[in-house]
Design a protein around this nucleic acid. Sequence first.
DNA 1: ATGCCAAGTTGATCAAGGTCAACAACCAAG
DNA 2: CTTGGTTGTTGACCTTGATCAACTTGGCAT
Lengths: 241, 241
Amino acid sequence: MTEIIKLQPACSQCNLQELCLPIGLSEAELSLVDSLVDERRKIARGEAIFRSGDRFTAIYAVKLGFFKTEVLSEDGRHQVTSFYMPGEVLGMDGISAETHHCDAIALEDSEVCLIPFHELETISVKVPTMQRHLHRVMSREIVRDQGMMMMLGAMRAEERVIAFLLNLSQRYAARGYAAADFNLRMTREEIGSYLGLKLETVSRTFSHLQEEGLLQVEKKHIRLMDAAILKKMLSQEGIGR
Amino acid sequence: MTEIIKLQPACSQCNLQELCLPIGLSEAELSLVDSLVDERRKIARGEAIFRSGDRFTAIYAVKLGFFKTEVLSEDGRHQVTSFYMPGEVLGMDGISAETHHCDAIALEDSEVCLIPFHELETISVKVPTMQRHLHRVMSREIVRDQGMMMMLGAMRAEERVIAFLLNLSQRYAARGYAAADFNLRMTREEIGSYLGLKLETVSRTFSHLQEEGLLQVEKKHIRLMDAAILKKMLSQEGIGR
DNA sequence: ATGCCAAGTTGATCAAGGTCAACAACCAAG
DNA sequence: CTTGGTTGTTGACCTTGATCAACTTGGCAT
């Protein structure tokens, strides 16, 4: 069950600071941020932070755990649009209409820092660095989505899977985890949905890359045997579809 | 050739105001915006406002004409990520890294209003309404991209084409043009790239929808014969791929 | 243990859409 | 008026990845 704890989140102490906050805030500015982020929330595996249609009030920084966001269309179809790991910020889809447009669901027991958005806007007015940072975070999401569109529109199945794994790898590395050896937090079906493929195709592609000796897969555990070659396969591979 | 004219753009007078600016700015606030947007720029068909790698300095409101943005990956592949019509704002991909990540190219002789971004941030601090609006515009882009990902990942060719046409139709309607009768500004190839399809598939799908009596296509001229049915085809159609 | 369910793998088959090619229509330039 | 280049249409064929189905494994509840 989702549970709310009023633990002083203290951004000023958080080891994710550099990922989630601007670099180079003054002491005074940092303490303003501390006062802003006043609530940490535990989300159990399978629970949602928010769902499509919920009123938008805050954005969320992942403190611990793993999330997916997914959109659903009128007919039953749904699609995973993103995965989020610690230090990443989610919920910005809600700003435009004061309503969320997707579900944000925990893939494992997780914790998020709740950032009330209107207060954030208020503080932005006083701390231009904060405003700049917010704009960058939003813009980064736009750029990321463009890359995603590129992937969905122009890459073949194997390339998508490779791009996905390399992206995960790079994000783990940025957090100080092993770049070539990690556990997937999501199912084959969720990966497939994210990549615009069926789960069988994801599974087959894993197996195939393993036969080639580029990958070792054992259930959710992935080991990249040669990231350099994988990268090359992305940029060289056929002029695509 | 691209040409710069210092014509008083006067947002306060512009008929696109409601699309491009927040509704409900005070007189005083509007005149602040007028002072911000101090340059209008003509872009000839085929020319770029900016290209990938260009330093980011401003965002652009389309005043007149039609644009596409496209990203290109290391290997030659490129993909159209968006089309923009009057009243829409482009260039926000550049904020995150102070560098543009795509090319913005005019599909016909066009005019844009140049909005220096750092000045915009400065004014946002003084005019909270402006800040709110900026955030909404950026967030709307995020939501739009999510819808695009949904389309690319979960829809079949015919559905994508229908969704594309209905989206255009709705945007024309919002601008006071006929919703069911308009001219495409882009080639079949550009549509295909945007939709993750080949130009032949776009062409065939047009022909097919025409045979069904749902569409009339003559070169670039499109007439939607029954938007209601088309909409229904989107939401009902098979549980998809 | 036992049974059940969700998650994953693998194979056989099929269809959507990509590829290749021919051709038509329509400019714009000479 | 002719020529060449761009854009669009249509057909024949082929490839990729979806679909359907059988089977395995592991976790959890009884």
